[in-house]
Design a protein around this nucleic acid. Structure first.
Lengths: 250, 250
DNA sequence: CAGTGGTCTAGACCACTCT
DNA sequence: GAGTGGTCTAGACCACTGC
């Protein structure tokens, strides 16, 4: 009908972008504000089309991108759903360790500490906190078949994760990210990892039950939520005698 | 016009698949057979639409997928081109090492050997060769700013890389994959990597100029060409004192 | 059956590139 | 201006889900 009615918003000076990207941005805002919760269905394509006064095809293209980014999940005949870390297999989207032999099994978590403190400058910079602002500090072990394999040290912004306690973690099911999205309204959607090989120090050696100096993968991860806001820094030390870090280059 | 004229091929028993996937398969075949060479333009969308007797939109969707898979590259106003490893930055699509300080720089290659031999069982299995079939074996060092950083040992099927010699490699520009696609008609399109941390042995220690036992990343890579055929196995040992392996989880 | 996402078409017009 | 990819629409029908 009206082909080039550009830019829905009132902001006339906004950079031009295709309609479907504007729709995408609107959907993104709704997701961020929690208009639809993880696991729930969003309105149908035709519904959204009429809400936004565009054609179904335009809505489709917006949803296509969001589902390519793992923010939405389409299910033919049922609807389009907000992605979630609830499903068990989602565990392995952010944990790329695979066993050298046998099939993938779920790790068991053992929490070492959960305390509050001030953010060191380096962490504060990454998490975009004011220097000295509060953080929650977690340490934990992941074991496969009883073998301690991952030692994680996790830093989170204190203001977002106010009520986070050891009990709350130990009592929860599935991954931490599932807990975070269900209980704290913060959904992790992307992470950047930097991987190096380092020798095990005394602490890692004891906790992972390997000799001091044993080569370990050191995986530094920054995790982002909506709008590319960094909300987690994590250093993981991985034993790689029975597992490897798996990656696909495409 | 004629909505559901399914399946272009004569094979009536073929599994049904949407038209655009059939178009995609046809394009894939043309790419594999080299109907258009790396870097060249393929016919326009309208041209392909009329060749295949479908609408432009259907061709677009096929090309969309191929370009999402990095097999084609669209350039608005110019055309759609066969992807290539020619561009310098393509180097880093398959080499995920990033400097901890300073900006990305191009590695210098030093070839150690290039010889022919029989494939060990393990390699033969990976490359789907008959046991004992010929392979080409390459070893090389990659250095950044004169610092030896990567030691690669590369196995290739001998029948595909018949004329591959040390001189041919040393005289070439850019990445090995560029050489392979330009001179041997084999384009690498995807790779799976398995990463572990291991201590440097005597050989690695000498070649990478680190102490014996220094933790190194051990990156085992299987590389695939069209049709998911494995055509390279590579073991890389990476120093990670000045670089890290970079990865994004999405 | 109605409602959802998935495919396909035909046609219009925009944005970009090159000549 | 001609030719390319990029966006958008309107409408049709298919495939799947669940009532």
């Amino acid at each position: 009908m009206k082909p080039q009615a550009r830019n829905i918003s009132n902001n006339a000076s906004a950079t031009f972008s295709p309609l479907y990207r504007q729709i995408k941005a609107l959907l993104l805002t709704s997701l961020e504000l929690g208009e639809w919760r993880p696991g729930e269905a969003i309105p149908s394509e035709l519904g959204l089309a009429s809400r936004f006064k565009v054609s179904q095809g335009t809505v489709r293209k917006a949803i296509d991108e969001l589902s390519a980014e793992n923010l939405l999940v389409r299910r033919q005949g049922k609807g389009t759903f907000v992605a979630t870390h609830k499903e068990p297999h989602a565990h392995f989207r952010f944990l790329r360790l695979r066993p050298m032999e046998g099939k993938q099994d779920y790790p068991q978590m053992h929490l070492l500490d959960c305390r509050r403190g001030r953010a060191p400058v380096e962490i504060a910079r990454i998490l975009e906190l004011k220097p000295g602002e509060g953080v929650v500090l977690l340490r934990r072990i992941l074991s496969f078949h009883g073998v301690p394999t991952v030692l994680d040290e996790i830093s989170l912004p204190g203001n977002i994760f106010k009520g986070l306690t050891a009990a709350r973690i130990s009592g929860s099911q599935g991954s931490l990210y599932n807990l975070f999205e269900a209980e704290f309204g913060t959904r992790m959607i992307r992470a950047d990892e930097q991987i190096r090989a380092i020798p095990a120090d005394a602490i890692a050696s004891e906790l992972l039950k390997v000799d001091i100096g044993t080569p370990l993968l050191c995986v530094d991860r920054v995790t982002y939520t909506y709008g590319d806001r960094a909300v987690e820094f994590r250093r993981g030390l991985y034993r790689t005698d029975r597992h490897y870090y798996s990656n696909t280059l495409a």
